[in-house]
Design a protein around this nucleic acid. Sequence first.
DNA 1: GTCTATACACTGATAGAC
DNA 2: GTCTATCAGTGTATAGAC
Lengths: 193, 193
Amino acid sequence: MIAMRTQERLIESARALLWERGYVGTSPKAILEHAGAGQGSMYHHFKGKSDLALTAIRRTCAELLGTAEALLCGPGTPYERIEAYLLRERDVLRGCPVGRLTMDPEIIASAELRAPVDETLDRLRERLAGTVEEGKERGQFPPHLDGEEIAATVLATVQGGYVLARASGSPAAFDTGVRGLLSLLRSDTDQVA
Amino acid sequence: MIAMRTQERLIESARALLWERGYVGTSPKAILEHAGAGQGSMYHHFKGKSDLALTAIRRTCAELLGTAEALLCGPGTPYERIEAYLLRERDVLRGCPVGRLTMDPEIIASAELRAPVDETLDRLRERLAGTVEEGKERGQFPPHLDGEEIAATVLATVQGGYVLARASGSPAAFDTGVRGLLSLLRSDTDQVA
DNA sequence: GTCTATACACTGATAGAC
DNA sequence: GTCTATCAGTGTATAGAC
């Protein structure tokens, strides 16, 4: 945080605290202390808490979408790309920095704050759905599977995996759920390139 | 709330607010106002906010577990029971009253508050795993599926379904994810009683 | 048992000095 | 741009009257 401008430190501090404590659980004071800034700085660069949060959330969403799309548009067969997305390294116990926001009452109550979250998960679903459809065309997945449905299942398994892991205090439950999903997808996979 | 004793009204008010706003987002004042009680009542019946929350959480966990086990131990084949659990009526946009607590930093930071959440989701997984294993014995599911893994996948799909639904502001995403999961389970199902 | 009164820190925001 | 000072309201908890 040392070599950043104050505005930048505020955004990064807000991102970290929103991930850890959510919107309701994050106070301007906590952000300012984390950023090493005085009370007035935030109100110079942003209209208030929600304005700073919106900037932070948009950046987090963009980053997450970039990471996921890189894997889903990368090399390999459709199954392999979905597998890569599911098995990618994650800080499981911290939860999903985007998904966790959906449990925050003030994020859901604000159309503006919810919008980037909605858009991010929606694009991820589209990308996953496209990958499944491509797998069907290539004969890797059977035609009776629905791309949109499987996409939602894959994304839900990931988001719910975080819930199970955090409840148990261990990443194991996340991995177990993912392995189960992969075994179901493999059952349907003709091992064809 | 009219015919209840004050203590009971406090617990039910805490349950409602914890579901809607989480632990961090729920203040004693809000609980007292919702319950129509004065400031002192809560501190007569409970040691403080966390003590009341613990009582409320335990009751919510017991209720959820009861509902789920009734379906998973009910009539029908293993597949049908899992289907009944997945398709049961839910207030999807409100989220899971137990699962949402895992995104609360103060619940996770407290071993005492996290314990009932952990135990509830763990028992649910065990019950689901047993159901899958039973399906394997009966020849309804193929032997290569792992009961524990599929149980985690099923539970994660439900928990993650809430996330997708709340993000999009519509229950549709939950249903889509569940349909995808059921289609994967059916692919592996020999339609045998 | 339930109430009001009170305490003290924190919340989100503004004013104005530098 | 950043700071300190200040504000009205809220958060969690206690004291003590009834």
